[in-house]
Simulated assay, not measured.
Amino acid sequence: MMKAIDLFCGCGGMSLGLRRAGLEVIAGMDIEPNYMATFAHNFGNEKAFKNSIATLCAKEFMSVLNLCKGELDILVGGPPCQGFSKNVPRKHRHLEDPKNQLVRNFLDYVEAFMPRFVVMENVAEMKNGFENSYSDEVMRRLSKYGYSVEHGVLNAADFGVPQRRRRAFFVASRDTLNVRLPQPSHKKATGSDQSNLFGELVDHVNIKQAIYDLPRLEHGQGIENASYRSDPISSYQQKMRGECNLVKNHIARELKPLQFERISSLKPGQGLKDLPAHLKTKGGYSGAYGRLTWDMIAPTITRWVFHPGSGRWGHPEDLRLLTIREVARVQSFSDDYTFIGSYNQQAGQLGNAVPPLLMESVVNTLVYDLYDDNISSRSSSDILLSGSGNLKETA
Score class of each variant (00 low, 15 high):
residue 1 M to V: 13
residue 6 D to C: 04
residue 9 C to S: 14
residue 13 G to H: 08
residue 14 M to P: 03
residue 18 L to H: 02
residue 22 G to W: 11
residue 40 A to S: 14
residue 40 A to W: 07
residue 47 K to N: 10
residue 58 A to R: 10
residue 61 F to M: 11
residue 61 F to N: 00
residue 62 M to W: 11
residue 66 N to K: 15
residue 70 G to K: 09
residue 75 L to C: 08
residue 76 V to C: 15
residue 78 G to H: 03
residue 78 G to W: 11
residue 81 C to W: 12
residue 85 S to I: 01
residue 87 N to H: 13
residue 88 V to I: 15
residue 91 K to G: 04
residue 93 R to H: 07
residue 118 V to T: 01
residue 121 E to H: 09
residue 122 N to H: 08
residue 125 E to H: 12
residue 139 M to W: 13
residue 143 S to Y: 02
residue 143 S to C: 06
residue 165 R to V: 01
residue 166 R to C: 06
residue 167 R to Q: 04
residue 169 F to I: 03
residue 172 A to K: 00
residue 173 S to K: 00
residue 173 S to G: 03
residue 179 V to L: 03
residue 180 R to Y: 01
residue 186 H to K: 02
residue 188 K to N: 08
residue 191 G to Y: 09
residue 198 F to I: 00
residue 199 G to V: 06
residue 205 V to S: 00
residue 206 N to P: 03
residue 206 N to C: 11
residue 221 Q to E: 14
residue 224 E to K: 12
residue 224 E to S: 07
residue 227 S to V: 02
residue 227 S to T: 04
residue 229 R to E: 07
residue 233 I to V: 13
residue 239 K to N: 10
residue 240 M to F: 10
residue 244 C to H: 09
residue 248 K to A: 13
residue 253 R to T: 07
residue 258 L to S: 11
residue 260 F to S: 06
residue 261 E to C: 10
residue 263 I to N: 06
residue 266 L to N: 09
residue 266 L to R: 03
residue 267 K to R: 11
residue 268 P to G: 01
residue 271 G to N: 09
residue 292 L to T: 05
residue 292 L to D: 02
residue 305 V to Q: 13
residue 305 V to F: 15
residue 310 S to N: 12
residue 315 H to F: 03
residue 316 P to A: 00
residue 316 P to F: 11
residue 321 L to F: 06
residue 325 R to N: 10
residue 327 V to I: 15
residue 328 A to P: 09
residue 329 R to K: 08
residue 335 D to G: 03
residue 335 D to C: 04
residue 342 S to I: 08
residue 354 V to G: 04
residue 354 V to S: 05
residue 359 M to D: 05
residue 363 V to H: 10
residue 365 T to S: 03
residue 368 Y to D: 02
residue 373 D to M: 04
residue 373 D to Y: 11
residue 373 D to G: 07
residue 374 N to F: 12
residue 377 S to F: 08
residue 380 S to L: 14
residue 383 I to E: 11
residue 384 L to A: 14
residue 394 T to A: 12
